[in-house]
Write a protein that binds this DNA or RNA. Structure first.
Lengths: 365, 365
DNA sequence: ATTGTTTAATTGTCTATACAAATATACAAT
DNA sequence: ATTGTATATTTGTATAGACAATTAAACAAT
C-alpha cells in the first residue's frame, strides 16, 4: 500500500515521498506522465485535494510540471536542476602571493564542470571568514575550498563544522588544521625545504639561516624540512640561525626585521626565505645595506611566484605547483559533491627546485 | 472591497496581491501578525481553503511565516531575503596585471553591502565570456561587472544585451565598447599618458617612442594622450616611433618584438610602454642587449602594478587607482541594483605620475 | 521554584463536492 | 486547405465542514 492511514505522517507527505521515490528510482522517467489526480484517487483512496497538495509541493520542489488537459509530468533533471553549481573559495587576499594562480586553477577546473566560484577575501581574519561563510551558506553553495586562517584551530574547525552541518563538503588548501584530518590538498613543503637545504649544503654552505613565520602549517613544515636536511648532514640546527616570527606577515614590519637579520650576516653564508615575498624584502634590504647578493650572501626563496622569473635578481627558489593545487582542490571537492563524503583524502603535490642565480657556491670547499 | 468576485482573476490570487500590497506599503510591518484565517474569512467572505492557498503561496515566496497557535507573520526582509546578493565579475585573467587588485576592490565593496562576487576568467575570449554569462544568469546574479573582451564591439554588445534582457544591470570596467554608452568606470588614460609624455618632454626628451596594443580603448586613449602632448609641444608625432600591435598581448611574442623596437633605439631617447608588464619585458630585453636603463635609454610604464614598487628597476610609471576602480564599479552596480536603470553614468578616476628612477633628463638641454 | 495539566487559539490535515478554464482531438462547415 | 465548433479530459479554483497537532498561557500540584 502506498498510504498508511494509521501512520502519524501526514498522508499528503506519504504520497509525496512515494512519488519522489518512483521518480528517483526511474520508474517515472523524465517527461513521463504520472497518473492523473483521478487515477491517484483510485490508487490511494485519498481525496483529490490531498493529492493536489502533494503534487503541488513536488512542482514547487522542481520534480514535476503540469499541463492542463494533458496531465502531470516528470521534469527532465528532476530537482537536480535546482541544485546549485556554485562553490565558495576562501582565500587570504586575492592580491597576495600565489592566490591569483591558485584561483585560476580552481576556476578552470570549476568551469570545466560548469561550476562557478565565489571569491572571498578573509585577510586571514576569522571574523571575515565567518562573515563570508554565512554568506556562502545563504547563497546555497554546494562546496567550499578553504585556506585556514591564522586563527586558532578551534575557530577554523568551528567554521568547517558550520558547513558540515549543512552537508556541504569542505576541502582545505595549502594549510592543515593541526590535529585534525580533513580532505586537503597541499604541496610537499617538508620535502621542498629539505631539497632546497640539501642544494645549499651541496654548494658548500654550512651555516645556513632561515626566516619564516611559524603561523601556518605550510611554513612550519618547511622549517622541519630544513632542520632534517641539516641533521642528515650531521649539522646541528642552530636556533640562532632560525629567524622565525609567529605573527602575520606584514611587509613594513618585515622590512624592519630584515635589517636585524642581515645585521647578523657574519654568522651565515646563505639564507632561506620562507617565501618569495620575504626573499624580495631581504634582497632590497641587503641592497640598501650594501650587501651583494649572491656574491656576499646566497639567498633562496620558496614559492616561485610568477614575477620571480621576470625579476632581475633571478631568485633560486622552490617552485610550488599552485595552479595544480587549485585544480586538485576543485577536483576533490567535485568528487565529494557528487559522490558524498568518505575517508578524508590528503593530496600532496610535489614541488621542485628552480635554480637561478641567487645562490653561489662556497669556494673554500 | 478586497475581493472582486466577478473578476476573472482567481480570488486566491486577488487576496495574495492584496496581502503583498499591504506588506510592501508597510501596513503590515515585519514581524507583525496578519489577521488569522478565521478573521480573513470574515473580512473577505472567502472559504478558509482559499485563504490558505493564498497564504501558502506567500510563505513559499518568502513574504510570510506561520506559527501554530500564534498566527501568520510578516517576514523581516519580505522577499528581499529571496533576492540574490550575488554579482558576477568577468575579468580577463585573475593572474594578470591589475586583476587581483581590481577584484579586491570589487570584493571589499561587495562585502560591505553583504554581496558576494562570482569570479569568471574569460582569457579575453568571447566564447569563454559567453559561457560564464550563461552560468551567471543561471545562478541568478543581480548584476555584472564586465571588462569587455578583445572581441568585436558587436559580440560584446550581444553579451551585455543578454543581461539587460533579464533586467540585470551591467557595469563596464576599464575598457569601453566603441560607439556605445553604458555605465562605466575607467581611469583617465588620456590624461595619464598626456601627463607622462609632458613629464618626459620637461626632462628634455624630444624623440619619445611608445609601444602598446591598440586592441583596447584604454591603451588607444593612452596613445591619443601621448600624441596630444607632443602636438601641444609642437612636435609632430612620428609614426615610426609608435610601435603598436593590434593583437592580444602574449609575453613570448612581445619579447621578440621588444628586440625589434630596441634595435631602433638610436631614433629615440625615451620610450613609453603601454603598461608595466611591457616595460619589464623591455627592461629585460635591454639588459640582454647591453642597453643601460636609464643611462642610455629612459623608460616609463603605465599601471604601477604592486610589484613595481619592489622591483629594483624602480620604474617611473603612471599609477592607476585600480582598487578604487573596483570599488567604484561595485558602487555603481549596487546603485543600479537598488535604484534601477537610469541615464548611463561614466566615472573617470584620476591617475597620477609616480616618479622613480627609470627616466633620466637629457643633459644637452 | 519546578513540573505537570488544562485550555483555548491557531494552523495543519483531510474529505467531499462543484464548477471553471484550458486544450488536444475529432469533426463539420466554408 | 482553413476555419470554426463540439467534446472529453485534465488541471485550476472554490466551498463547507471536520478533526488533529501544536503551543502560549493560565493554573495546579509538588
Amino acid at each position: 500500500m502506498i498510504i498508511d492511514r494509521n501512520s502519524p505522517i501526514p498522508q499528503y507527505f506519504q504520497l509525496q515521498s512515494w512519488l519522489i521515490e518512483q521518480i528517483e528510482q526511474g520508474l517515472f522517467k523524465p517527461h513521463d506522465k504520472i497518473p492523473t489526480e483521478e487515477e491517484i484517487t483510485q490508487l490511494t483512496g485519498l481525496a483529490r485535494a490531498t493529492i493536489r497538495q502533494a503534487i503541488q509541493n513536488l512542482v514547487a520542489m522542481g520534480y514535476l510540471y503540469r499541463k492542463r488537459r494533458l496531465g502531470t509530468f516528470v521534469l527532465s533533471q528532476s530537482a537536480d536542476a535546482n541544485k546549485n553549481t556554485m562553490v565558495g573559495v576562501l582565500v587570504h587576499d586575492i592580491r597576495s602571493g600565489y592566490a591569483p594562480e591558485f584561483m585560476r586553477g580552481v576556476g578552470d577546473e570549476a568551469a570545466r564542470h560548469n561550476f562557478s566560484i565565489i571569491l572571498c577575501n578573509t585577510d586571514d581574519l576569522f571574523s571575515r571568514a565567518e562573515f563570508h561563510a554565512n554568506q556562502l551558506i545563504h547563497h546555497g553553495v554546494t562546496g567550499l575550498i578553504f585556506m585556514p586562517t591564522a586563527a586558532t584551530p578551534g575557530k577554523n574547525l568551528q567554521l568547517i563544522e558550520k558547513f558540515h552541518q549543512k552537508n556541504i563538503p569542505v576541502v582545505l588548501a595549502d594549510r592543515e588544521i593541526p590535529g585534525n584530518v580533513f580532505d586537503i590538498v597541499t604541496t610537499d613543503n617538508f620535502q621542498g625545504a629539505y631539497d632546497l637545504t640539501c642544494f645549499l649544503l651541496n654548494k658548500g654552505h654550512r651555516r645556513i639561516a632561515i626566516t619564516l613565520s611559524t603561523l601556518f602549517s605550510s611554513e612550519r613544515a618547511r622549517l622541519a624540512g630544513y632542520k632534517q636536511a641539516l641533521i642528515d648532514h650531521e649539522i646541528e640546527p642552530a636556533s640562532s640561525l632560525q629567524f622565525t616570527i609567529d605573527e602575520r606577515f606584514i611587509e613594513k614590519q618585515y622590512e624592519h626585521y630584515a635589517k636585524i637579520i642581515l645585521a647578523e650576516r657574519k654568522n651565515y653564508t646563505a639564507i632561506i626565505a620562507g617565501n618569495d615575498p620575504i626573499a624580495y624584502i631581504l634582497y632590497n634590504t641587503a641592497m640598501e645595506m650594501g650587501i651583494a647578493i649572491p656574491d656576499q650572501l646566497s639567498l633562496a626563496g620558496y614559492d616561485d611566484l610568477t614575477f620571480s622569473s621576470a625579476h632581475p635578481m633571478e631568485l633560486t627558489t622552490v617552485h610550488q605547483p599552485i595552479y595544480e593545487m587549485g585544480q586538485e582542490s576543485m577536483k576533490l571537492l567535485l568528487q565529494r559533491i557528487h559522490n558524498g563524503a568518505g575517508a578524508p583524502q590528503s593530496i600532496v603535490l610535489k614541488s621542485h627546485l628552480v635554480e637561478r642565480r641567487s645562490v653561489q657556491p662556497i669556494k673554500s670547499i
